[in-house]
Simulated assay, not measured.
Amino acid sequence: MATEDYYYLNDLIILKKKHHLIKHITDELPTPEIHGTKVWGSSFMIMDYLKKNEPELGADMLEVGAGWGLLSIFCAKHFEANVTATDADPHVFPFLETHSLLNDVEVETVVARYEELKVKDLKGFDYVLGGDICFWDELIEPLYSLVKRSVKAKVGTIIIADPGRPPFLELAKRCAKDFGGELLDGDISKPRKVTGNLLVVKT
């Protein structure tokens, strides 16, 4: 179901850019600086995967590069997950917090870059998730290191999704070799057609 300025998907209320609440944020607050100006499609591929491979209720989940945080909100709503959303850009969090309120869930937010998340920070999480976060060559190494630290911290499942950009595929190749990661196909039709891949590492 969709209207002119919002739509429902996966039992979530998702605002479009033209919605008055989003326009208020963009007009009155600083603009996100690291591609945090919209909802990215790979998050929906992870939602689709989790619907088919349901986590236990109450799992502890960390989303990296969360942006507007729809994936975090989905996990909190569907699986009663305890979710922490991190992003390097604090200016994305008003969008996340607005969607959290609309969807009646709580998500903890933390400003952090990938390389700032140490093993001690990752311990206790059952999942580490990220969509559309490996889009530059210079992101391969910090994300590989994040996966390595997540494995060391005994995070149960790490999932990173992408349309299939070359940096992501290189990351997936390295993680398959070193951590037994799988590269799975992703294909969704809503809210728009998105195809790509999911890197899934289970420890």
Rank of each mutant, 00 (worst) to 15 (best):
H99N: 05
V64D: 02
W136E: 14
L122T: 00
L117Q: 00
L96T: 03
E97F: 10
V128E: 03
L101V: 15
I133K: 00
S72D: 07
D132S: 04
G69P: 06
F95G: 00
Y144P: 03
G130Q: 04
A85V: 06
S72V: 06
D121M: 08
A85N: 02
F135D: 07
V83N: 03
L102T: 00
E108K: 15
L62C: 12
L129I: 08
H91G: 09
V64N: 02
E80V: 05
H91T: 13
A66H: 11
I133V: 15
E108P: 03
G69L: 09
H78F: 13
K123R: 14
L129R: 02
E108R: 14
C75K: 00
M61F: 12
K77V: 09
V119W: 05
D87R: 03
S72I: 11
D126G: 12
E138P: 04
L122I: 02
P90M: 08
G69K: 00
T86W: 01
D137E: 15
N103W: 07
W68Q: 04
L71D: 00
A76R: 01
D89M: 04
K118V: 03
L96W: 04
G65E: 06
M61H: 10
E116Q: 13
V105D: 09
L117S: 01
V107E: 01
V83A: 12
K123Y: 10
F125C: 07
V83C: 13
A76Q: 07
N82Y: 09
V110S: 09
D137W: 15
A81P: 09
L96G: 05
F95V: 03
T84M: 14
E138I: 14
V110F: 11
L129E: 02
E115L: 08
D87I: 00
F135G: 10
V119R: 08
N103V: 02
A76W: 05
C75L: 14
V105R: 06
H91M: 13
